[in-house]
Simulated assay, not measured.
Amino acid sequence: MSTREDILARVRANLGVNADDVARLRAARAALAAGSSGPRPHLQGDLAARFRAKSEAMASTVDAVATLSELPGAVARYLVSVGLPLRATCWPVLAGLDWVAAGVMIEARAANGDDLTGITGCFCAIAETGTLMLASGPDTAATTSLLPETHIAVVPVSRIVPAMEEGFALLRAEQGDDLPRAVNFVSGPSRTGDIEQTIVLGAHGPYRVHLILVEDRPSPDSGP
């Protein structure tokens, strides 16, 4: 046994780690590195259509625009339809759009408890379950999707993937070892059924989630 192995063996012994524990850890690391997956459902048809149907089934509302330049107008129409002020906080990547022409007052910053509406992009979207995958970062604050009562998310159709496995594979492919501190999955408005098994929206976060699908292809970063 080498000096290094001897030292590590003593450390393991003092920590109560035996050879079986080490073998299981190595096996787990090898399985993760292999990237194998178990049986999965086969998704048929258009991913965007499935994502929309699954999202609406979980009480999200969904709109669609052809290009990102149409986003401010779509946001303005939605805010008016639900009786909200034409004001929101957004991820910085969206701040350069023509919000003034749409009559929407935008602040490119992380949301706080006083903000009624937060607008985000998404890292990708999961067609199988109608779920948003959001990766946190300096310009993709998690609070913007969690604190306001209304969350509006921009979903490029090109970033809709079949399932969560493809979402994590895309994250590893694009960010490598520089993974985000947090990855949040959003499947419709926050809800609970703890009280008399009655579903209540907005229990732990937004009680409105509005998704705007964008047909054109964005830059391949984490948003929008």
Score class of each variant (00 low, 15 high):
residue 56 E to Q: 15
residue 148 P to W: 13
residue 88 A to W: 07
residue 145 S to Q: 12
residue 201 L to E: 05
residue 129 T to C: 05
residue 125 A to D: 11
residue 98 D to I: 07
residue 129 T to Y: 05
residue 133 M to L: 15
residue 66 A to F: 02
residue 173 A to D: 04
residue 221 D to E: 12
residue 217 R to M: 13
residue 191 R to W: 13
residue 30 A to H: 04
residue 103 G to L: 10
residue 51 F to R: 04
residue 23 A to V: 00
residue 134 L to T: 10
residue 168 F to C: 03
residue 127 A to I: 14
residue 91 W to M: 02
residue 67 T to H: 14
residue 59 A to E: 13
residue 163 A to F: 07
residue 165 E to W: 07
residue 140 T to R: 01
residue 33 A to K: 12
residue 202 G to P: 15
residue 61 T to W: 08
residue 123 F to A: 08
residue 211 L to R: 03
residue 14 N to F: 01
residue 63 D to T: 15
residue 117 T to K: 07
residue 10 R to Y: 01
residue 108 A to I: 04
residue 55 S to Y: 03
residue 100 V to T: 14
residue 195 I to F: 05
residue 78 Y to T: 12
residue 81 S to A: 15
residue 75 V to I: 12
residue 167 G to I: 01
residue 126 I to S: 11
residue 64 A to T: 14
residue 185 F to C: 06
residue 132 L to R: 05
residue 178 D to P: 00
residue 218 P to W: 10
residue 141 A to C: 13
residue 159 R to P: 08
residue 21 D to K: 09
residue 71 L to F: 08
residue 183 V to Y: 02
residue 124 C to K: 09
residue 145 S to A: 15
residue 80 V to N: 13
residue 46 D to T: 06
residue 10 R to Q: 10
residue 200 V to Q: 15
residue 183 V to Q: 01
residue 21 D to H: 15
residue 100 V to R: 15
residue 82 V to C: 15
residue 221 D to F: 11
residue 21 D to F: 01
residue 222 S to I: 14
residue 195 I to G: 06
residue 165 E to I: 13
residue 29 R to I: 01
residue 23 A to M: 02
residue 187 S to G: 12
residue 57 A to C: 10
residue 52 R to G: 01
residue 168 F to Y: 13
residue 141 A to F: 02
residue 213 L to Q: 06
residue 216 D to K: 07
residue 195 I to S: 04
residue 79 L to F: 08
residue 17 V to H: 04
residue 155 V to W: 13
residue 30 A to M: 03
residue 143 T to P: 11
residue 202 G to I: 09
residue 71 L to Q: 04
residue 1 M to K: 04
residue 182 A to D: 00
residue 159 R to H: 11
residue 208 R to H: 14
residue 139 D to A: 12
residue 159 R to D: 10
residue 195 I to D: 04
residue 35 G to E: 09
residue 65 V to P: 11
residue 22 V to D: 12
residue 29 R to T: 00
residue 124 C to V: 08
residue 120 T to V: 05
residue 38 G to C: 06
residue 133 M to E: 06
residue 184 N to Y: 10
residue 214 V to P: 02
residue 138 P to H: 05
residue 15 L to A: 14
residue 41 P to T: 03
residue 88 A to M: 10
residue 147 L to V: 11
residue 151 H to E: 06
residue 62 V to C: 14
residue 91 W to P: 00
residue 10 R to T: 08
residue 95 A to R: 08
residue 173 A to P: 01
residue 111 A to C: 13
residue 142 A to I: 06
residue 221 D to H: 11
residue 193 G to T: 05
residue 116 L to H: 08
residue 55 S to R: 04
residue 183 V to K: 00
residue 55 S to G: 09
residue 2 S to G: 01
residue 160 I to Y: 05
residue 158 S to N: 07
residue 132 L to V: 14
residue 29 R to W: 01
residue 41 P to K: 03
residue 83 G to R: 13
residue 219 S to K: 06
residue 2 S to N: 10
residue 157 V to F: 03
residue 210 H to A: 12
residue 135 A to F: 00
residue 198 T to H: 07
residue 148 P to Y: 14
residue 167 G to Y: 00
residue 183 V to A: 03
residue 182 A to E: 02
residue 10 R to W: 03
residue 56 E to C: 10
